[in-house]
Design a protein around this nucleic acid. Structure first.
Lengths: 185, 185
DNA sequence: ACCTGAACACCGTTCAAGT
DNA sequence: ACCTGAACACCGTTCAAGT
């Protein structure tokens, strides 16, 4: 059999989803592909960049068409898409956030938020500050949510009681501040 | 020589600060203490709880007296303390955030924010949502800031240009939303 | 070009044995 | 009670050698 980079990344995602991030090792992935660990390094320079590719693929698979017209509604839309994309795979949030922290991949959500805030007529500095603040909120919230969900499912609880546990609410708090400055600018 | 838990934690912090989180291994810490790796397990049940203890100690060392009277000023005060505490040690933000994510230690900042928001007269649900939103903002921002600083210092740049790079600004965006709801409640 | 086999330099953790 | 010594079951990555 002949493998390509995309096969390696795809298989990495299934290992991630079935066994979790701590089980996603190069050796484990290699054996899952029926290949020696060293063979992986022909398709990927190292584990870090593999994880970055996994993060990008997770986001790409979660991509949805943009419907909203108002800039603030579009922010909510992008954030919901981002959150759903990360929640779709076990430890997905952790992988995406880590990749983003190290500046690897995962640049797309940032760009979408940026353009939404620009369309809102916010001054350039606030577009920057606002984009990062929104991302931190979504990332932090989703990692927490996914960790709690996975801990709960290990303990046989079906769902945490909160439903979306304040995701939209906290986003709305931040949007309040941005809207106030958009009309003032 | 006889070591206690507090010696192990303290030494772990110096290893962290000098060589970074990736070098803070049980084996490295043991050799730094002049002891066998297995000896550490008499003072600490495993690495995860050691890191939780390190996170708590980092926060405790950064503790400052509370001066502000207005609830929103107190939020800013608590956040600045939290940020400074994490920035005081190499990879400090990463360690504190990870501990918090897994629900280990690091419960103090959460309680302080909670009581500040309660004093603001916010309804119970918003106290909850607001506390988590603020923490996510501070954590996300500080991890990003510290990562950038350390990357820059590795590349011989003295400081990133932004100064506080929007920390207070993004916090203020969120406080806008909270203040609006405090006066409405 | 792609893969194997073997090695290098590590990990966290456990446990019998010593003092 | 506290520590050593040795082991167990792993890691990521490199590299000569094969096809």
């Amino acid at each position: 059999m002949r493998y390509h980079r995309s096969d390696v990344v795809a298989r990495a995602i299934t290992v991630l989803d079935e066994y979790g991030l701590e089980s996603l090792t190069m050796r484990r992935l290699a054996s899952e592909l029926g290949v020696q660990p060293s063979a992986l390094y022909h398709h990927v320079p190292n584990k870090q960049s593999l994880l970055a590719a996994v993060a990008d693929e997770i986001l790409q698979r979660g991509a949805r068409p943009r419907r909203a017209e108002r800039w603030d509604r579009r922010v909510i839309e992008v954030c919901a898409e981002l959150r759903d994309a990360m929640l779709a795979y076990r430890d997905g949030a952790e992988v995406v956030v880590t990749a983003h922290t190290f500046g690897l991949g995962a640049r797309e959500p940032s760009a979408s938020l940026r353009s939404a805030l620009s369309d809102g007529g916010l001054p350039g500095e606030l577009v920057d500050v606002g984009t990062r603040a929104i991302l931190h909120l979504v990332f932090g919230h989703t990692v927490e949510e996914q960790t709690a969900m996975q801990a709960a499912s290990a303990g046989a609880i079906d769902r945490s009681p909160g439903g979306d546990s304040g995701f939209e609410q906290s986003l709305d708090l931040l949007l309040d501040g941005l809207r106030a400055r958009a009309s003032a600018g």
